[in-house]
Design a binder for these strands. Structure first.
Lengths: 354, 354
DNA sequence: TATTAATGCTTAAACGTTTAATCAATTTTT
DNA sequence: AAAAATTGATTAAACGTTTAAGCATTAATA
């Protein structure tokens, strides 16, 4: 055996990669036996298994993932679609998805839509083409037409949505309680003595932003505060647009005494305008964001925000996929996991600490 | 032909996916002809090509990527290894790599080392296992032993390093001129009247940080300023450690009048301490960071920093890989692309604007 | 008109695994 | 001691594509 082995090692310097066949040749057994031995099949003797594993190590055998994926019809790849990776929320979700899936031998392919519907469609095509075993996604702002997501479902590929996309398709969803979050925020602002609370909201057609708007309105009603059209603005929630919408609010004859932005980046834009015009937070106007991006704690004043539990969302999304992967029967159905959000009060809305 | 087609469409509702064979059967030609037609082989008639493409569309044919990858020995997947994705620098590099590779039909698999050597090794194994066609990486802080990277090279897989890892392996590298950057910073601080410039540097064993340290020392010499050991500190450059090292510097009998941190997060930590102790920037102590993370423009005072050209680095890394991919001969050799860095002066070091 | 070249396709093997079906040898059960 | 069950392997096909080699048929050249 030793002679055969060294003969093969010599050949390897010329030849390409070690295959299951090489191991079989060394040991004078069939490739099938080798495959089974490597997978600890019960019908292979312990002796053979040990021998196979030893030779595999000596020859520096690396299984050909493509071949096994082709044969088994599973790529062990999971696609992830996010609007962008450079927000802390998404990068943290991704990190946790990866950690959880890694344990089970899955890899992830990350794609970014940059909030563009067209890019998102291209991403879906790419992932389907790459033969992923599942897709975990958060939708772009622009996305209204859901045909492309239906395409995933129709191929029988498990689809899990998080953050954006609740209810819109009949698939698993993980997110926080947006409606309740708005209540937390408005309750807090009212407690601080605010009476004219403005909301720079996201696009109404996106369910989570709609929920935040509904929560905002219902919470105002709860406190017997009037709902005024001029205080409720729709935005794409970028820093740039946050600046624009804040300027718009300051132009009102009757200015608000609090601004609740549905995203931290928009809140940042609003803050910049307030700072530039020397309007004091929270005294003149209280400010609240959404998402608890790290910078909210860094800026002056620090911005009150909602913690979206990115860690938990990532882990749950991964686990949900793994459950699908284990089952053979594919029955997609709406299965919501809604996490409680948490209000992080900071200087921008906290009168007591000033 | 129409009958055959509809017959097949019916079968498809029961059967799995459309393959090249299905198309061949419909048209009564060989699978080989179909494959060639789909790839616009010159030996196939236009008529056949048109027919094949039409049927492919009708049957909703999606090529099986795994099968072609197996046959061709190329996965069209590129692995990316970064310390983390939630810094703006890395997420921007990644985004640009992706965009550039997407044009040529490549996908990327992103992995994070979290600055851990062990995790990095696992990532490399994973990527090799997934049969990536190349790896683009920036090394973890911890990484000193380069055996694992040698493993990539020895398998003949193109390896491209960026930011971290210059010169350490004999492969392509894309980065900025760190040595020169330190000169830019020191020159600027001296111009502001600073005489005792401290440096919170990264680990010396990492070449880029070593270069920044060398640049710092040489620039001090150039300006005839003394080099003092107590002003040169090694750090892991996290926000937390930035706080610690700043506190350490403030405890000196002879405090510095400027602090240059080799990373923005460390600069942020330093700034927090200065703000808390009511030490004015830049008047009492001027502060400079490195990396131009977006938050440097958001905090008060905004922090002067070095723009690392993440966009350009990402694009160049991708292009470098693509060049490798086109060549058949694999000759890895050191081929450095060094971009000029740019100093962004902000309030934390700009006396004139105060 | 015979010879060569170009065109348009087919055949069959290959990529590296996995797995259903089978078989021989051994062990257990009647 | 014959029948049945278990053990430990083998054989061969399959996953879906690509491609080198080959083979007619038609077109171009001498």
């Amino acid at each position: 055996m030793l002679k055969r082995l060294s003969k093969y090692i010599k050949k390897l310097n010329i030849k390409k990669k070690t295959t299951i066949k090489d191991i079989a040749n060394v040991l004078n057994i069939s490739p099938a036996a080798v495959s089974k031995a490597l997978h600890d099949d019960s019908r292979i003797s312990e002796k053979t298994k040990r021998a196979v594993k030893q030779v595999a190590k000596n020859l520096n055998y690396q299984p050909n993932h493509l071949a096994s994926a082709l044969r088994k019809g599973k790529s062990h790849l999971v696609g992830v679609i996010v609007p962008r990776t450079n927000s802390n929320f998404f990068s943290s979700v991704i990190q946790n998805i990866e950690e959880e899936l890694d344990k089970e031998g899955y890899n992830i392919i990350i794609t970014q839509s940059n909030e563009s519907y067209k890019k998102e469609c291209r991403n879906i095509d790419t992932l389907l083409f790459t033969q992923v075993d599942g897709i975990i996604a958060s939708m772009a702002n622009e996305t209204i037409d859901l045909d492309y997501y239906e395409k995933i479902k129709s191929k029988g590929i498990p689809l899990i949505l998080f953050d954006r996309g609740e209810n819109d398709l009949n698939v698993d969803y993980i997110g926080i309680n947006d409606y309740e979050s708005s209540h937390l925020i408005v309750d807090h602002l009212v407690q601080q003595g605010c009476k004219r609370i403005a909301h720079i909201g996201g696009y109404k057609h996106t369910r989570i932003f709609n929920n935040r708007i509904r929560g905002y309105i219902d919470a105002l009603k709860k406190h017997n505060l009037p709902i005024e059209d001029e205080l409720l603005i729709e935005s794409n929630l970028t820093t740039e647009d946050g600046r624009k919408k804040m300027t718009q609010l300051l132009a009102l004859k009757n200015r608000p005494d609090a601004v609740y932005a549905a995203g931290d980046y928009a809140a940042l834009g609003a803050q910049q305008v307030l700072n530039e015009q020397d309007i004091k937070m929270p005294h003149d106007i209280a400010l609240v964001g959404f998402g608890n991006e790290p910078f909210t704690a860094m800026v002056t004043p620090s911005i009150t925000s909602i913690n979206q539990h990115s860690t938990e969302i990532g882990k749950q999304a991964a686990k949900t996929f793994l459950e699908h992967a284990k089952k053979t029967t594919i029955k997609q159905q709406l299965n919501k996991i809604i996490l409680d959000a948490e209000l992080i009060v900071r200087d921008s809305s906290n009168l007591k600490h000033i």
